[in-house]
Simulated assay, not measured.
Amino acid sequence: MNKKIIYLVSMMFFSLMSFISMQQVAQADISGLTVTPLIGDSNISDRFQIIGKPNSTRTLKISLSNFGTRDLKLNVVPTNASTSMDGKIIYTQNVKAGQYGLKYAFADMTQKKTVYVKANKTKDVSFKVKLPSGEINNLIMGGFNIYDSTGITEGNATVPVWITNANKPVGGIVSLHDLGLDVIAKKPHIIVNLQNKEPGQMKNVIVHVTVKRKSWLDRFNLGDKKMTADLTYPKVAPNSRIPVDFDQNTTPIKAGTYVVKGAARSGKATWTFHKKYTITQDQANNINKRCKGLIYNKTTTYILIVCVLVSIIFLIFWAIWYSGRS
């Protein structure tokens, strides 16, 4: 009977401890790894939150538990939050001061570390964070990106670090940044990069964007079709780009002038944009040669061939007519 009571009490204890751990464990996609920010006395358990004065220093501790079967060599890299294509806050990109209006980069406040964690062991690692000397305007959304430095284990873990001078909500402003090209899964992509240049997080940003390549074939309704994107971003990080992806699938990138139009809305605020961009032949070739399965549209070539043939036939008939008059 006593053994049963001891067993039940033990199970209840471990269940409670597991629940507490689940409340404080940061997001981790690395197999066998549990990442826990050691926050201490705070009602916020999923991130560090610093409300500090300029030039002050804080020490942050992260607990890394390796429940896997092999040792891990982890990189713990400070960076700032970014916005993914599906409207999520991510900490996987290398963000520098000056990008998208970012005044202070979290990577400049602390150093990255490489940590070895043996199998079935836990290791705590500390970081000294030196706040900038200037005033912090609203929110710096920093964080630690944790990944396997050997590349053997895929995935990553993140520990957010939010720094502010006052715990007040701040909005953002959406504007057009540029037009970019990329290769994703060996397919060409045109990406319209919007941006939130303000140091405030945004929610539920609704975006409508169109992209049209200008061509003389538009006069005959034979030009490239207008591409349209209607998206909702649940979250947008402060001082970050907002990527709007146009997957070209098997269509190669064409050089030329592209017209980008659109609008964004968040709450009662609305922003509009309209701008032209040029994609050079070298830029198009650089993307296309890295892709596979592209199907080239030869409409322009066929039209030119027909025009040449018609011109030749016209010249022949003109020559015959002219010879007859002589």
Results as ranks from 00 to 15, higher is better:
46 D>C: 08
62 I>K: 06
59 T>Q: 13
52 G>S: 09
74 L>G: 02
52 G>F: 01
58 R>D: 12
68 G>A: 01
61 K>H: 08
61 K>C: 01
77 V>Q: 09
64 L>H: 02
64 L>R: 05
50 I>G: 03
74 L>T: 03
71 D>A: 05
55 N>D: 12
56 S>Q: 13
40 G>E: 13
70 R>M: 01
71 D>R: 02
65 S>Q: 01
54 P>Y: 06
60 L>Q: 10
59 T>I: 06
63 S>R: 14
65 S>T: 02
75 N>V: 08
52 G>P: 11
53 K>S: 12
71 D>K: 04
58 R>P: 08
58 R>T: 11
42 S>Y: 04
52 G>W: 09
60 L>E: 08
50 I>Q: 05
54 P>M: 13
40 G>M: 11
78 P>L: 01
48 F>Y: 15
46 D>H: 13
40 G>S: 12
75 N>P: 05
74 L>R: 00
65 S>G: 02
56 S>K: 15
51 I>M: 14
56 S>N: 14
61 K>M: 06
52 G>I: 04
50 I>E: 03
79 T>P: 04
74 L>M: 01
72 L>P: 02
67 F>Y: 14
71 D>S: 09
41 D>E: 14
49 Q>V: 10
42 S>R: 05
61 K>P: 01
66 N>E: 10
60 L>Y: 01
43 N>F: 06
49 Q>W: 04
50 I>F: 02
78 P>D: 02
63 S>V: 03
77 V>E: 12
48 F>Q: 15
63 S>C: 07
45 S>L: 10
52 G>N: 10
66 N>P: 13
56 S>G: 10
49 Q>N: 14
64 L>Y: 00
76 V>R: 00
49 Q>A: 10
46 D>K: 15
67 F>C: 04
62 I>M: 10
43 N>C: 11
71 D>V: 06
45 S>V: 04
57 T>Q: 15
68 G>N: 02
68 G>P: 01
45 S>A: 12
63 S>M: 09
64 L>K: 05
51 I>N: 12
63 S>P: 05
77 V>K: 09
44 I>D: 09
47 R>E: 07
59 T>M: 10
71 D>F: 00
54 P>R: 14
72 L>G: 04
66 N>H: 07
73 K>Y: 00
43 N>S: 15
67 F>W: 15
77 V>L: 06
51 I>H: 09
71 D>P: 02
78 P>M: 02
45 S>G: 11
53 K>M: 11
69 T>A: 04
66 N>T: 08
69 T>K: 03
62 I>S: 07
61 K>L: 03
76 V>S: 02
73 K>P: 00
51 I>F: 09
68 G>I: 01
46 D>L: 13
52 G>D: 07
48 F>K: 15
50 I>H: 05
55 N>F: 02
67 F>L: 13
50 I>L: 13
63 S>G: 11
66 N>I: 09
76 V>Y: 00
42 S>A: 07
58 R>C: 07
59 T>Y: 02
54 P>T: 14
64 L>M: 03
47 R>I: 10
65 S>Y: 03
54 P>D: 10
55 N>I: 05
76 V>M: 05
62 I>Y: 09
55 N>R: 12
57 T>M: 14
54 P>Q: 12
77 V>F: 03
57 T>D: 15
58 R>Q: 12
76 V>N: 02
57 T>L: 13
62 I>N: 09
70 R>V: 00
